[in-house]
C-alpha cells in the first residue's frame, strides 16, 4: 500500500489518481497513521516551505518520516515535498527542513528573461542512472512550477539537472530517498511512468 502524506495542504487528489491509474493501491494519510503495511511513502507538495515546517506537530511528523526512512522503504518527494527533504529552506523566512538529504533550498536565479515562478514544461537531463528512470528517455519535458531550488551539499546526490537561466537540480537522491522538483502526476504519460517506476522500486540503488 503506497502512502501519500497529507500535510493538510495542496492538491493530493492528482497524486492519488496518478498512482491509482498505474494500478497500484494507495491511500492518503497523516504521518501518525503510517503503518507497517505502507511499502512506499510519497510526500507531495504545493505550498510554502515555512508553513509546513512551522506546523504545530512538526516534531511528530519529522519523527514518523525519519522512522519510515530508516526502514529502507522508498520515499518520493514531489516539488515542495522534494524541497522539504533538505536541511533548511529560505522560503517564508528561513526554517529547518526534514534533514533527509543534505542541502539548502534557496530562491532561484531571476532576471527579466527568466521569469519566476518557473512555470511550464522543461527538459530533465538525467546525470546518473536510477531505478525511477527505467524506460524513460533522457531530456524529456516534465511540468515544473516553483521559485525555489534545492542545492545539495553533496554533488553525487544530483541525479538530474534542468536549465532556467541557470542549471538547477531537478532530481536529488540518496539511498532509498528521491526528490523530484517537477510534478510527475502532472506530466502526462512520462510522469505517470516515473510514478509507476517508483511504486515498483524496492528502495535499493
Amino acid at each position: 500500500m503506497i502512502a501519500i502524506l497529507d500535510c493538510e495542504m495542496g492538491n493530493l487528489q492528482s497524486v492519488f489518481h496518478g498512482i491509482d491509474s498505474m494500478g497500484y493501491d494507495c491511500e492518503i494519510l497523516k504521518s501518525n497513521e503510517l503503518s507497517d503495511e505502507n511499502t512506499h511513502l510519497v510526500i507531495p507538495g504545493v505550498g510554502n516551505y515555512h508553513q509546513v515546517m512551522s506546523s504545530e506537530n512538526i516534531t511528530d511528523i519529522k519523527k514518523s518520516i525519519h522512522d519510515f526512512a530508516n526502514t529502507g522503504k522508498p520515499i518520493l518527494g514531489i516539488c515542495l515535498g522534494m524541497q522539504l527533504l533538505s536541511d533548511w529552506g529560505e522560503e517564508g523566512g528561513g526554517i529547518d527542513g526534514l534533514g533527509l538529504i543534505g542541502g539548502n533550498v534557496d530562491r532561484m536565479f531571476e532576471d527579466r528573461t527568466t521569469r519566476l515562478p518557473h512555470v511550464g514544461w522543461n527538459s530533465v537531463d538525467f546525470l546518473n542512472d536510477h531505478p525511477l528512470f527505467s524506460g524513460l528517455k533522457n531530456n524529456l519535458d516534465f511540468y515544473f512550477v516553483h521559485s525555489y531550488q534545492f542545492i545539495p551539499k553533496n554533488n553525487n546526490s544530483i541525479f538530474a539537472s534542468t536549465n532556467h537561466g541557470q542549471d538547477f537540480t531537478s532530481i536529488v537522491a540518496e539511498r532509498n530517498i528521491i526528490g523530484v522538483q517537477f510534478h510527475p502526476e502532472k506530466s502526462q504519460s512520462n510522469g505517470l511512468k516515473m510514478l509507476e517506476n517508483f511504486c515498483a522500486w524496492d528502495g535499493k540503488c
Partner: peptide, 8 residues
Amino acid sequence: AYKFGNQA
C-alpha cells in the same frame, strides 16, 4: 499564495 504558494 501564503497557504498554497505563489504558483497556485
